[in-house]
Design a protein around this nucleic acid. Structure first.
Length: 574
DNA sequence: GCCGTTTTCGGCCCGACTGTTTTCAGTCG
């Protein structure tokens, strides 16, 4: 039997099929494949496991997947093949997914390049562009040829999606320099950045102004802009100097609400809203919500949603799955607010691999409005990080006592990021762990274990009576590596049973991801949101952790470090 | 190929911009 396909592979196959169909001008089907691909990507469980657990019905229940696509998925996960994709590949033997990664090159252009020039790969396409073979083909001239070459260079530079930690501060810099311009009434970050996705492809901005020409003039002259890609009266597309692409939408002030909805997306969410509008005899676009030719309302997002019979949906929830249905039933949860945290429960200091002292970290935490902090330095088996043994841990406890006496209105908690060893035992003796206010555990070594072994290793640790929190539970790092193989279904069940909280880590790990956040909350597991700061400026990670929690529909009550330190410590012992 | 507050057939989101064009196709979000 062939290797079974993963969710990512199946989603990519569906996208590829959609492109082949689009190239042939097939109506409606492509969208169905794309919606299904998106639905598969948002799953937290592997389809192989889902199918094993509850059969075809659960596959069919995934939004956007009907009988026919369910069969294709089952074929893929049981045989390792997808007949339709293989047949299309035979008919169109070129790298459709790769070539359509080039900006402005879609399925039709890719097919045309194959038919006329037999271009199968990005390398062959680059050669064709360099030797001037593209200009002169139907609908393609010298500008297209130049753009294709530029697009290939862009791809080669690895300038793909950036982590939000990099994109959001950059976007805020641009917003700050534009805000001073006369006539602006609104200026906001939109797109995937406003939805606080983990990774960001484009920096999308939206502005309303009484003087559109002034804004456009100032925008294209910003020092951050590398070049202007396209410029119309309402939309300017640019490439920023950090390699990211971006759009600025400029609209008159009375179109703000609908425009913000439109430009925030997601694309799938917009489609759901517009379909809903249509069913109600209305039309929704970025210019407003219309009944016949008459604009109904669009001053604020809230009005747009209300006119569609919906609760306002927070940007982080606008992914195009079940959020619109929930809004129709008035069941949108009140998400945890960005300022809701009272403590940070994962901080490394210069006792292990952090840059700053305990007191420095505490002072900064206090300055940004927190009232407690757990010091969680690494433990001895992590020698590369100068992990603490029992003796140093006790010494650290004494130092924390001293600093706590000096601090007013702030408390440092004694803790640890204790390594879970290969056999599931902890890296420090119980006598030492008992001196701490709370015990946190995580995996840093032997990541390549078999799924079942890794799961048992973690479960063994979670059952330890002193363990309170499991840090970065899946071990993934965004844009760097996937997590280790682990049965998160089971981990979540065990966490619930033994009262262990799971971390939403706000560093570049962003672990748990939002699918598991939702799953954990549905199972009644408590969460903590932490910075994993190794230096004072990394407390900024708390915002990204909160964004991640919000995308997983977390409420304030679900997150333990929204409590006061007294309530928090009490919740650990209960 | 999916889906249902017009539900098992007959629909399927909407507009802006570019390039190569004399009226539009392709791409993007």
């Amino acid at each position: 039997m062939s290797r079974r396909l993963t969710n990512r592979e199946i989603a990519n196959r569906f996208d590829e099929i959609a492109l082949y169909l689009r190239a042939q001008d097939v109506a409606f089907k492509p969208q169905a494949f794309e919606v299904a691909a998106e639905g598969i990507r948002s799953l937290s469980e592997e389809l192989v496991d889902l199918y094993k657990r509850c059969g075809k019905k659960c596959v069919d229940d995934i939004p956007g997947i009907g009988k026919s696509l369910a069969d294709k998925i089952i074929e893929a996960i049981t045989t390792g093949h997808m007949k339709e994709d293989n047949e299309l590949k035979k008919k169109f033997p070129f790298d459709m997914l790769g070539i359509t990664q080039i900006p402005d090159v879609g399925p039709k252009t890719a097919l045309l390049l194959y038919k006329h020039l037999h271009v199968k790969t990005l390398t062959q396409l680059e050669r064709a562009a360099k030797t001037g073979k593209i200009a002169g083909l139907p609908h393609l001239g010298t500008s297209s040829q130049r753009n294709i070459l530029r697009g290939i260079q862009f791809l080669k530079g690895g300038q793909g999606r950036r982590i939000i930690h990099e994109a959001l501060p950059y976007a805020r810099l641009i917003v700050d320099s534009l805000k001073k311009i006369h006539g602006i009434t609104h200026l906001d970050i939109a797109g995937s950045l406003r939805r606080r996705k983990e990774t960001i492809g484009d920096i999308d901005l939206i502005a309303t102004t009484s003087k559109p020409a002034d804004l456009a003039h100032a925008f294209v002259r910003l020092p951050q802009i590398e070049r202007v890609i396209e410029q119309g009266p309402t939309k300017i597309a640019v490439r920023y100097k950090n390699g990211m692409a971006g759009d600025l939408l400029i609209l008159p002030p009375d179109e703000y609400g609908a425009a913000l909805v439109h430009f925030t997306g997601s694309r799938e969410h917009n489609i759901l809203l517009r379909e809903r509008a249509k069913r109600r005899g209305l039309k929704l676009s970025e210019h407003g919500l219309f009944k016949a030719e008459k604009r109904i309302t669009n001053r604020t997002e809230k009005q747009v949603y209300a006119s569609l019979g919906l609760q306002e949906i927070p940007p982080e929830m606008r992914v195009g799955s079940d959020e619109v249905d929930r809004a129709a039933q008035k069941k949108i949860p009140s998400l945890i607010a960005y300022g809701a945290l009272k403590g940070d429960l994962q901080v490394q200091t210069n006792w292990s691999d952090g840059d700053a002292s305990i007191e420095q970290m505490a002072q900064v935490a206090k300055a940004i409005g927190l009232s407690y902090l757990a010091v969680t330095d690494h433990t001895q088996s992590l020698t590369i990080a100068h992990g603490l043994d029992e003796k140093r841990l006790l010494a650290q406890g004494k130092e924390i006592d001293k600093i706590n006496k000096k601090l007013k209105g702030f408390r440092i908690l004694k803790s640890t990021e204790c390594d879970i060893k290969k056999d599931g035992s902890l890296d420090l003796k119980d006598e030492a762990l008992k001196t701490l206010d709370l015990v946190c555990v995580s995996i840093h070594s032997n990541r390549a274990m078999k799924k079942n072994e890794m799961t048992q290793r973690i479960i063994h640790a979670l059952k330890h009576p002193l363990v309170n929190i499991f840090f970065h539970p899946t071990g993934r790092i965004v844009n760097v590596r996937d997590g280790y193989e682990v049965d998160m279904d089971l981990i979540i069940k065990v966490a619930k049973q033994y009262g262990v909280a799971l971390e939403v880590n706000g560093s570049q790990r962003l672990d748990l991801h939002e699918g598991y956040v939702r799953q954990a909350l549905e199972a009644g597991v408590k969460l903590v949101v932490n910075s994993d700061a190794h230096s004072p400026e990394q407390f900024a990670n708390l915002e990204y952790g909160l964004a991640q929690a919000r995308r997983g529909w977390a409420k304030k009550v679900d997150v333990l470090n929204t409590k006061t330190v007294t309530e928090f410590l009490r919740s650990l012992s209960s």
